[in-house]
Design a protein around this nucleic acid. Structure first.
Lengths: 170, 170
DNA sequence: ACCCTCTATGTGATTTTATAACGTTGCGAG
DNA sequence: CTCGCAACGTTATAAAATCACATAGAGGGT
C-alpha cells in the first residue's frame, strides 16, 4: 500500500476533507449511526465488521485490504484475505465504506446515513482522501447516457491532485 | 479478465458508444492519427506500442493487461508482464489509451487528438465500454475542490449500468 | 563511420490485490 | 430442539502490477 509508511495522524486532530476536527467524537458518532442503521434494517454489524469500520474511521484515510487484514490479525480475528474482503464487502454494499478504485483501497464514508453518490479528492503527494458529493447523472455524463440509452446505476468519481496542505508545503 | 470469454464482435460492425459503425475504417484512421501525432511530438510509436494500440482499437472494448500480453506473445513479442505494462504506460501517458479503473483494464481512446477528460459508461452485463466527455472540474466537484483549496489535476469518471443492447434483451 | 548515451526491450523473480472452494460455527425461525 | 442459513476460518490459487537487472537499438556529436 502507498499510504502505510506514513506516520499516523495524531489521535484527536486528523484530516477530514482536509480540515481539522474533533476526531474522537466523529469516530464515535459514526459508529453509533452505523449501529443504529443496522438495527433498523436488520443488518448484522458483527465484531469483524464493526472492527473494520472502526479502524477505517479511526484512520480517516484510505487503507488497503491487506493492511486492514494485518490489524485484524493483531486483534485476534482470522488472518486470511477473505476475512478482510468479506467485511469490506458488507460495509461497501451497505454504504458504510467506499472503495477508492484509483488506489485499490477503502475509506469510511464521511456522510453516513443518506444514500448518496460520493466523489473523492485524492492527494497525489500524501494520499489523503476527502469525500464530497456529486450528481454526475445530472451533468454532461447524464445527458450522454440518456442520449444513447444507457442506464446509470452507480458512478465512480475520483479527482486526483494536490491537497491544500501539500500545496502549502511546496 | 471479465470480458475475455465473450465472442469477439464481427470485424466490421462493432460497438463504439454502443453504436454500429465502420470499424475497419475507424481502426485505420485512429492509427494514422496516432502515428502523425507521434511524429509531430517526437514520440516513438515502436512496434510493441503500435501493436498494443492496434489491438485495443480492433477489439473496441476494455482488455486486461494480461490478455494483451497473451496476444503480444502470439505475435512474437516478449511474454513477460512488463512488456505489456510498459507499452500501456506509454499509450496512457500520451492519451492514446485510457485505463478503466473499475475494471483494471484498458480501452483505446475514442477521441484521439484533443486533450480531454474522458468519462466512461460501463455495462455491468456485457462489459461494453463507451467513452464520452466530461468536465467534472466545473460542476459540484470543482466547487468543492475550490472551496477547500484542492488542485484537481486529473479525474476518473466511470458510470456503471446497463447498456441499451442489454436493456433491450432483458 | 564511430562511439556514447539514453531509451526501449526482454526476462526472471516477487509483491500486491482478490477470489475460489470447502469445512465449521452459531444464531434465529419454526 | 434442530434445521437452515449466514457468517467465519483456513487452504489454495488466480489476477494485477512492479522490481531489478541484462541486452539491444536509435540518434546525436565528432
Amino acid at each position: 500500500m502507498t499510504s502505510e509508511m506514513r506516520p499516523a495522524p495524531a489521535e484527536d486532530s486528523a484530516l477530514v476533507g482536509f480540515q481539522k476536527h474533533d476526531h474522537a467524537h466523529c469516530v464515535e458518532s459514526s459508529l453509533t449511526v452505523a449501529e443504529t442503521r443496522c438495527k433498523e434494517e436488520g443488518l448484522r454489524l458483527t465484531p469483524v465488521r464493526r472492527k473494520v469500520l472502526e479502524m477505517l474511521l479511526q484512520e480517516h484515510r484510505a487503507l488497503g485490504a491487506y493492511s486492514i487484514l494485518d490489524r485484524l490479525r493483531d486483534e485476534g480475528f482470522g488472518s486470511q484475505p477473505p476475512v478482510a474482503y468479506r467485511a469490506l464487502d458488507f460495509l461497501v454494499e451497505n454504504g458504510f465504506v467506499h472503495k477508492i478504485e484509483r488506489l485499490n483501497a477503502f475509506v469510511a464514508c464521511a456522510h453516513p446515513g443518506a444514500t448518496h453518490s460520493p466523489a473523492f479528492m485524492i492527494c497525489r503527494k500524501c494520499d489523503a482522501v476527502a469525500e464530497t458529493h456529486s450528481t454526475p447523472a445530472k451533468g454532461e455524463l447524464g445527458a450522454a447516457a440518456r442520449a444513447v440509452g444507457f442506464e446509470i446505476e452507480r458512478t465512480v468519481v475520483e479527482a486526483e491532485g494536490v491537497c491544500p496542505d501539500c500545496t502549502e508545503k511546496a
